[in-house]
Design a protein around this nucleic acid. Structure first.
Length: 886
DNA sequence: ATCACCACGTA
DNA sequence: CGTACGTGGTGATA
């Protein structure tokens, strides 16, 4: 039992315990979606938080080995030489575990040439001398020698890392028959297989203890070795040097110069935000509350632990004249604005400057007082501005002067785990807790922040974030994202007209076909199964029909379309084709149904015969938009039948026609620009079809002699390049031998070598910087480029190779998007942008405006960026999206 | 109800 | 063993 008056020092051998956890926990249950194994990290942290909670140490450190090399291997090259290389799946976990500990503000100690246990021994010795109760936690038996009245060893049992056995001096005597200080003597005689230290043959623990007890010490025993009788006596005499060597090596260093001592290891409050971040990356969910619990902070208040929160001002409720006066006083200072929304319309509005907050109900009078200021260039900050901008527009107010949106800024800073709510940003950048009402309570204990208070927080978060925004990222925010936000609000409000009649007719047709095909399929196999269930299909295909097993998935064997097509080729069966037909019909029908229910589904607008998607501006890691509710960026186009869906997207009433505009090969053009490859640049400047031009070069023929097969091959190669395609992937896609794919790549790079050089150097630069950058300065971090896990690292390499290309294309499209929007408005044209599908725009053109609109769209897309190759824009026109898209 | 997984639509 | 997304069904969990 520890004396509660004494401070408690807990020192842990991180490496050995994580290694035990690695083997104790099934790796399959502890792997992130990217493929990072986390079982060792999880097991260690799980044990560690239990330990901290149970022991309540006042001082704490975790030690790690630096490498296999140490002063012991210098003395004896065979030391631990029998140990096999630790698995790669484990190695990669140590740096991540150290990151977790750093986030928890737990000191991580390492020393070149010194093993973790020597660090433990040094700290334990110093701690005991300085009046600490010391707890040593290690999986290495040599640490038994450290046990004294002041030092207790916690040793993992064979059952697992969570069961720790306490070794006090009494417990050591009970188990080994000798006091802790003599344990190394026994170990030296017996030997330690795991350290590759052979002992005296035929001498086990029993004999060793007997000898030491008899002679009092190892030295005395060795001095009197000639007095030992029998075979073991002879063995001892023959292995005296081994025993001396073992004893020398198993003595832990107690005087390592660590530069710090036990007193420097006082337990620190954890960095709750950092813990959340690293746990999110490792996909640990249940561990988070346990960590907060162990350190005495509950998860909800953890964020507020460090800094004392400044109380938000109590906002003053103002009427219309009050608002006018307040705004006049605010002048041109930056004001944060929060609009609450009810039924799509503004309900309340809160305004804040650095030292004051006011708010008001939205009414005709207050709107009239606020309108001119909201529509002025006076600088404003809104968090997640788009829905608020939309609500204001519905109320007839066009917000201008938006200079910052912390949600967008947060996404630009960390696109992989964007903070979605203001509360997340308050946690991260202010280290405070945003007051939020508990939605589960009818009468919440804590009131949620009011709009005025929210605005006050927004302003403070903004100030904190500006300090962290690199200039190039700040420029992306103000020059690209904020103007885009404004445009997207109008696009979402406009919506796109979709014909319910066309859709419902087609849906019924497909439904009837799906049913008929299903009946035929059932007949083929003699029973009814759920054709939508991969699990049931596996039974049919691989058990009943005994078709060859296909690509493995996590839960069995794949039944996807590519696999079924392969099966149809090798083992033709009518069921396969029927299944494919059924899949196609049901998939199309499902898309149609979801579109149909989305028509006029926007509560705020009512049924207007149009679909209003939501563009998620923070929806990608590369800078692209995403589209939800419904997703209008994945409407089918590939085959004739699916185009009937596009035909249902029509020009709306009061408008004349739809215009589609798309960039042709924008990513390859960006590649040409970034790589500066003379051949590729020439290809785009020549006016020749890109793939024909490239094909001619690669195959050494005239452009006119490039066959369709050649064109297909170089086209696949060109597109694949942007994604980091391998020879294996290329051969699979083109269904050619790997050797041929390899040859194709060789020939391609022989002609377009600068492309390869660029791709390589861009990944290399990302490895140095830790992030990639688009032409316009948008960044994307890639921590996994440094991972020792090959799969993880190579995935990161491909994504890093793609990010500047896809991201630059997204930047260019956004620039074109808002410039078109702005010019249409400036010239007071009624025509409006409806949709953005990454490299395509759909515009609704008002009567008499075609020529002007076509010109604007073409030119603004064409001159959105100045590259070393032209940006080619294809324009289409028609009464519906299908026709216009041709 | 919520989650993971599979499958599949787009650029 | 090619990047970036969102949706919907199934089947296993709670």
């Amino acid at each position: 039992m520890t004396d509660s008056a004494k401070p408690t020092l807990l020192v842990v051998d991180g490496h050995s315990l994580a290694y035990r956890a690695f083997f104790a926990l099934p790796v399959d249950n502890f792997t992130t979606k990217d493929g990072q194994h986390t079982n060792g990290i999880y097991g260690f942290l799980s044990m560690f938080v239990n330990l901290v909670k149970a022991e309540q140490p006042t001082h704490l450190a975790v030690a790690f080995d630096t490498s296999r090399h140490s002063f012991r291997t210098d003395q004896y090259a065979e030391y631990k030489a029998n140990r096999s290389e630790s698995p790669a799946e484990f190695k990669g976990q140590i740096p991540l575990l150290q990151e977790c500990l750093a986030a928890m503000n737990v000191p991580v100690l390492t020393q070149e040439g010194i093993e973790a246990d020597d660090i433990l021994a040094t700290l334990a010795t110093q701690g005991a001398a300085q009046g600490f109760d010391v707890l040593v936690c290690s999986g290495d038996r040599d640490t038994i020698q450290l046990v004294t009245d002041d030092v207790t060893l916690l040793y993992p049992s064979v059952q697992g890392v969570s069961q720790l056995k306490r070794y006090t001096p009494d417990a050591v005597v009970e188990k080994y028959g000798l006091p802790p200080a003599n344990y190394p003597d026994i170990a030296a005689l017996v030997g330690e297989t795991s350290d590759n230290l052979p002992g005296v043959p035929k001498v086990g623990e029993k004999t060793a203890v007997k000898w030491i007890t008899q002679w009092g010490s190892l030295d005395a025993l060795l001095d009197n070795a000639d007095k030992i009788t029998g075979v073991v006596g002879g063995n001892l005499r023959e292995h005296l040097d081994d025993v001396r060597r073992n004893r020398s090596l198993n003595a832990l260093l107690r005087d390592v110069d660590l530069g710090i001592g036990p007193a420097d290891l006082a337990v620190q409050p954890i960095d709750a935000q950092a813990v959340r971040d690293i746990f999110a990356r490792l996909e640990f969910r249940t561990l988070l509350p346990r960590v907060f619990d162990a350190v005495g902070v509950d998860a909800e208040t953890a964020a507020a632990s460090a800094a004392p929160a400044v109380a938000a001002p109590v906002p003053t409720e103002l009427d219309a004249p009050g608002l006018t006066a307040w705004l006049a006083a605010a002048g041109e200072t930056e004001v944060a604005v929060t609009v609450t929304i009810d039924g799509g319309m503004p309900a309340r509005i809160g305004l804040a400057t650095a030292d004051a907050a006011v708010e008001s109900r939205w009414s005709e009078e207050t709107a009239a007082a606020l309108g001119p200021w909201l529509e002025s260039e006076s600088p404003k900050v809104l968090a997640d501005a788009k829905p608020q901008v939309k609500a204001l527009r519905r109320a007839g107010v066009r917000l201008r002067g938006l200079v910052f949106d912390p949600i967008l800024a947060g996404w630009l800073l960390r696109p992989s785990f964007p903070d979605k709510r203001l509360g997340d940003l308050v946690d991260r950048y202010l280290d405070e807790k945003l007051p939020e009402a508990d939605p589960t309570q009818l009468v919440p204990e804590t009131e949620g922040a009011t709009p005025g208070q929210l605005s006050w927080y927004i302003l403070r978060v903004t100030e904190a974030m500006r300090g962290e925004l690199p200039a190039s990222v700040a420029a992306v925010l103000s020059d690209i994202e904020l103007p885009t936000l404004d445009t997207l609000a109008d696009m979402e409000l406009a919506g796109v007209a979709v014909s319910h009649e066309k859709l419902s007719g087609f849906s019924a047709e497909l439904g009837a076909r799906a049913d008929a095909v299903a009946q035929l399929a059932y007949a083929e196999i003699g029973r009814e199964v759920n054709l939508g269930s991969p699990k049931q299909l596996q039974e049919v295909l691989f058990e009943q029909l005994e078709l060859p097993k296909t690509r493995k998935t996590k839960t069995g064997y794949s039944t996807d379309a590519a696999v079924l097509a392969d099966l149809q080729e090798s083992n033709p069966h009518p069921f396969l084709d029927l299944l494919l037909q059924h899949r196609e019909a049901t998939k199309l029908r499902q898309i149609i149904e979801s579109l149909d229910t989305a028509i006029g589904n926007d509560r705020a607008i009512g049924a207007d015969g149009r679909i209003h998607t939501t563009y998620v501006q923070t929806g990608s890691q590369t800078g692209r938009l995403s589209s939800t509710d419904p997703n209008l960026q994945n409407i089918p186009i590939r085959n004739e039948e699916s185009r009937r869906i596009r035909a249902a997207f029509e020009v709306g009433e009061g408008y004349d026609t739809l215009l589609t505009a798309d960039y042709s090969q924008i990513e390859m053009r960006i590649m040409a620009h970034l790589s500066g490859d003379a051949g590729l640049i020439e290809a785009f400047n020549s006016g020749e079809d890109l793939h024909r031009f490239v094909g001619a070069r690669v195959f050494g023929v005239d452009p006119a002699d490039v066959t369709p097969a050649m064109r297909t091959k170089v086209k696949a190669m060109s597109y694949g390049l942007v994604y980091g395609l391998s020879a294996f992937g290329l051969s699979k896609q083109l269904r050619i031998e790997q050797s041929e794919a390899k040859l194709l790549m060789t020939e391609y790079f022989a002609r377009f070598g600068a492309v390869r050089d660029y791709l390589r150097s861009s990944v290399a630069q990302a490895r140095i910087d830790g992030y990639t950058e688009t032409i316009f300065g948008r960044r994307r971090p890639f921590p996994d480029l440094a991972s020792p896990n090959r799969v993880l690292r190579e995935n990161a390499e491909r994504a890093a190779l793609n990010a500047p290309i896809q991201g630059s294309a997204a930047d260019i499209m956004k620039i074109a998007l808002f410039r078109i929007h702005d010019e249409l408005r400036r010239r007071e044209l009624r025509s409006r942008i409806l949709l953005q599908i990454h490299d395509e725009l759909v515009v609704e053109v008002a009567p008499g405006e075609w020529d002007a609109v076509e010109q604007i769209v073409h030119d603004r897309m064409g001159d959105a960026a100045e590259l070393s190759v032209p940006l080619d824009v294809q324009i289409g026109r028609g009464e519906n999206w299908d026709v216009a898209g041709h």
